[in-house]
Structure formats: C-alpha cells, structure tokens
C-alpha cells in the first residue's frame, strides 16, 4: 500500500498531562464545584490534553499543609487560605485585614489583581494562578448587638487575625475549631461568632444564633490561593500555560460571584429562621472603624520590619475599595 493510504498524524499523539488538585472545601461546597468547572474548562480548551483530578475535603493534603504540599509536589495544584500558615505570607496577609470589603467579588478581584501586580517573593516557590476571597466577615450573636457597648466583654468565637479584631472591638475572643462552634454557640460557651454570613448556613450556625449585626464596614476577608507546583508549571507547553492563565483570569469573577451568591443564600437562611439583621448607624460605623485601626497599623509595622511595602500595598487595596461599586 502507498504511504498516503494511511493518514498519519502530524505528530505522535501527545500524552495527556494528568494533574492532582488538592482542595480543603468539601466536594459539595460551591467553591469546590467552581474549581471543578475551572478544571473542566481547562480540559475542554486543551482538547483533553490536560486532565485534572480534584481531591476535596483535604483528602490529599490538610488545609494548613496545602501550600507546602504544592511546593513539594504532594499535589500539583492546591487551593487553601493564606491565613492557615501565619507568617509565611507577610505581605499578602494584608488582604485579610478588616478594611470593609463590600462583597466576595470585589475582594476576589482586588486580591488577584494586587498579588499579580506585586508578585511578592513569599509566593515565589509556586506558580500562583489566581486568588479568591469570601465576603465580609460579620458578627452573628445570641443577643442583639447595636453598638460597641453591647459587644463589650461578649465571648466571640475567633481565631488568628479575627481574634485580634474581636479584642480590638472590646469583646473576648475564644478560639475553637469550626466544627466545634455549633455546639459551643448552642450551649453558650461562646455568645457569638465572627464569620462571613455564608458560614451561618454552611456550618449551620444560623440555627443557634439569634441576631446578625451587619459589621461589613470593618468587613475582613480570607484570601484563598490557587497555585501550581513550580516545576510542573515550567514543564507545561506554552499554549497550555496560556490556557491556564486565560481560564484562571475568567474564574476570579466566577468564584467571586459564587461567594456573593453564597452570602445571599446565607442571608436568606438567616431570614428564614426569623433572626433580625441589625445595621449600624453612621456614627457607630466610624467608631468600629477606629476600633480596628490598631490591627491595621500592626500589619504595617510588621511589614516594615521585614522590609516590605505594606503601607503601599494597603493604600492600593483601599484605593481599589473606594473605586469598587458598592
């Protein structure tokens, strides 16, 4: 037979690139589903040359070990919170500060844009794809809180940075794991919790609180990275790298919108349980802002001690917050 009878492919068929992706969210969580959609989109645009398998619920690496796991190749991709490894990200820590994020979409956009702009050395050991961040952390309590006086001394569940916010507001931070919080609220070990409103539905804590105070004027967030192992990234062909970059760019908004939707659902859940939502008046808002200022100053000082431009970074966040639609 002649050679032309058999259509030979131009190149030998490429081996599919298989990647493991570790996520601490349970598989049913909307952010995990969004990550799955991201993986599917990449598979689609690369015509199946890249196959990503998601390991949810921390089944491959626990949330605090996720970043180091990506560095060492336990997983090729990872999604977790910067805050779980305190001290590792001295500049990006600034993203989580109580700066008054209006919603998750804005927070996600600001976080990704600034991280890409600053390219801080602290994330040099991975390839950062994008960042998303939850909506403003608010106050959910068993007794209504209208002002700082009513909050004074209240036992509020908080860990890490949010513990500092709680103390600066004059309340008493009590640390415990998220799974323990439901019972602690039910039995009164704590009288409230500081968290995005989405958590009240996701972790069912809405069942055991009575009132929500819209403290989004000092809304903090938790930035979550999506990162790839550095060597893995370098080994990818240029066109696939481009697809990763493009899809990731698009997915910042998808995650952000998902956070917004989750907060919306959280609000509905709280309403369906007949809990009231308290808005702070203008004067009170200013007092809350002033109260948490030391937490922000502390960040700037700590960053300066490490020769990082924390002040400039912070100014950039605040500028973007002002420009963002409310």
């Amino acid at each position: 037979a002649k050679k032309s009878d058999v259509p030979t492919p131009a190149k030998a068929p490429e081996k599919t690139i298989e990647l493991n992706y570790s996520i601490f969210f349970p598989p049913t969580h909307v952010q995990c589903i969004e990550a799955q959609n991201w993986a599917d989109e990449i598979a689609k645009r690369t015509n199946g040359r890249v196959k990503i398998t998601i390991f949810p619920g921390g089944s491959l690496t626990q949330a605090p070990q996720c970043y180091e796991g990506v560095v060492n190749g336990i997983s090729d991709l990872g999604m977790s919170c910067f805050a779980y490894t305190r001290g590792r990200f001295p500049l990006l820590e600034g993203l989580d500060l109580p700066l008054g994020y209006p919603n998750g979409l804005t927070a996600s956009r600001i976080a990704t844009e600034l991280a890409m702009k600053y390219k801080p050395a602290e994330v040099n050991d991975v390839h950062l794809l994008y960042i998303h961040a939850h909506g403003p952390g608010i106050l959910a309590t068993k007794k209504p809180v209208n002002n700082l006086e009513e909050l004074k001394g209240m036992k509020i569940r908080a860990t890490g940075l949010s513990a500092k916010i709680v103390s600066s507001l004059g309340a008493t931070p009590v640390a415990m794991s998220q799974p323990e919080t439901y019972e602690a609220l039910q039995k009164g070990v704590v009288e409230g919790t500081l968290c995005p409103i989405e958590t009240l539905k996701g972790w069912k804590q809405g069942e055991v609180i009575e009132s929500v105070t819209d403290s989004s004027v000092i809304g903090y967030t938790t930035a979550m990275f999506v990162a790839m192992n550095k060597q893995k990234w370098e080994s990818l062909p240029a066109d696939i790298k481009q697809i990763f970059t493009d899809v990731s760019k698009e997915w910042v908004d998808k995650h952000g919108n998902a956070w917004n939707q989750a907060d919306e659902d959280g609000k509905k859940f709280v309403e369906s349980l007949n809990h009231k939502t308290i808005s702070l008046n203008e004067a009170e808002k200013q007092r809350w802002k002033q109260a948490v200022q030391p937490v922000i100053d502390e960040y700037v000082t700590a960053a300066k001690a490490k020769n990082l431009s924390g002040e400039k970074f912070l100014a950039d966040i605040q500028k973007m917050l002002q420009q963002s639609p409310k």
Partner: peptide, 19 residues
C-alpha cells in the same frame, strides 16, 4: 527538612505568633 522549610517560610502560630 520540614523544620527548615518552616524556618525559611517564617511560619508562626495563629494567635500568639510563636515560631
């Protein structure tokens, strides 16, 4: 090796910031 990695990264505990 893990300790060295934590040292290099400067990881500290969540609230007290103990190395």
């Amino acid at each position: 090796a893990y300790g060295q990695a934590l040292h290099k990264a400067g990881e500290v505990s969540a609230t007290l910031q103990i190395p």
